[in-house]
């Protein structure tokens, strides 16, 4: 089976050309073809020698994989389905909004984190995505040229695949790669502290933390990760870093009726985040089958937002997008597809 070139960093490409006995500059030429141009085969890398292309062809392929399915929401959101070589599926959500177009990418197939409110958790974990599979969601998107932002908020916990996430953000932001500003990229995490340290030390991309309640015991009940990395320790860790407009930290807060939407929560959030330059995004809960949780009403969410703002915390309510095609926050899942495929075989 041939290896994919897509997703290789410049250093990795240099190692490859070194092993093939090709000139070092060939690595930069390959990166140009992979990340700045639009080709379908190694043979189209016209500034490479015939011998170089032949050697590459023997062991490698580009690695582009087109989506096999797209669903379009009434609000214009599109959910793309990419197949993998192991008969699994990756979902990515394209979210156009006025002058912005955001792609929500996946970092894993399924997820190990087991959050009570998340549909992806219900499918368990089927595997890590390679750097190439992460980059492919972006590069093979029909709307690639329109993209303004990337958020790592699709299936999986990005910091449980820190290697793939770090390499893919390097490719997205490097001169040899897509050359994007890191300000256009946000990586969202549940708060795996060691990986978060690596990210903060080596990346300038924005960070989003899934917070959902400031109280330890409550967070344990809805997010098992709290048993390992308590939110208070995550916040303490964040205090060692500087956050500005250039690199923001934000907190995702899904609102559950009667659970995390009281004045007591506002007070504790203000205490917990005191002195940290951050913002909170309030998110409407999208119910999943069998959940014991309910969403907070929009009126109550607005009150909660206003209370947080009055405490000096920049707070917004995130628009819910793609709910009708199960592309909204917490709804991505390929469990049914996997089941169907198992049944077909």
């Amino acid at each position: 089976m041939k290896q994919e070139l897509l997703g290789k960093t410049l250093k990795e490409l240099q190692e490859i050309v070194g092993e093939l006995g090709l000139p070092k500059f060939t690595a930069k030429q390959i990166a140009d073809w992979l990340y700045k141009k639009d080709i379908q085969s190694i043979d189209e890398m016209s500034n490479l020698s015939k011998k170089a292309r032949q050697l590459l062809n023997e062991q490698f392929e580009i690695g582009y994989v087109a989506p096999v399915k797209v669903q379009t929401s009434v609000d214009g959101t599109k959910k793309y389905l990419y197949p993998t070589a192991t008969d699994k599926f990756i979902e990515a959500a394209y979210i156009p909004d006025k002058d912005r177009a955001t792609l929500c990418v996946s970092s894993q197939i399924g997820c190990k984190m087991g959050c009570l409110f998340c549909m992806t958790a219900k499918q368990g974990f089927q595997g890590q995505l390679s750097t190439g599979q992460i980059i492919n969601q972006i590069k093979s998107l029909p709307e690639f040229e329109k993209l303004t932002n990337i958020v790592y908020m699709g299936m999986g916990e990005p910091f449980d695949n820190i290697e793939g996430v770090m390499k893919s953000t390097e490719i997205l932001t490097s001169d040899y790669g897509f050359g994007w500003s890191p300000k256009r990229i946000t990586v969202s995490t549940i708060g795996i502290i060691p990986a978060m340290r690596t990210f903060l030390a080596n990346s300038k991309c924005h960070l989003a933390i899934s917070l959902h309640t400031p109280f330890d015991e409550e967070r344990k009940e809805i997010m098992p990760i709290q048993n390992v990395y308590p939110i208070s320790e995550i916040i303490d860790e964040l205090r060692s870093y500087e956050f500005t407009q250039h690199r923001r930290v934000s907190f995702e807060y899904i609102m559950f009726k009667g659970i995390n939407d009281s004045s007591k929560h506002v007070k504790e959030l203000a205490r917990l985040l005191n002195g940290l330059n951050c913002r909170i995004n309030l998110i409407r809960f999208h119910p999943i089958p069998g959940t014991p949780l309910e969403g907070t009403s929009i009126e109550k969410m607005e009150q909660f937002r206003d209370q947080l703002i009055s405490k000096g915390i920049m707070t917004t309510i995130r628009k819910s997008r793609g709910e009708d095609i199960f592309a909204a926050c917490g709804l991505l899942s390929t469990k049914e597809l996997l089941k169907k495929q198992e049944g077909d075989h």
Binding site: K112, I222, P224, N227
Partner: peptide, 12 residues
Amino acid sequence: VPYQQIVAEIYF
């Protein structure tokens, strides 16, 4: 069983 009574440890 109320979800508040369930304490989960995940492997990752």
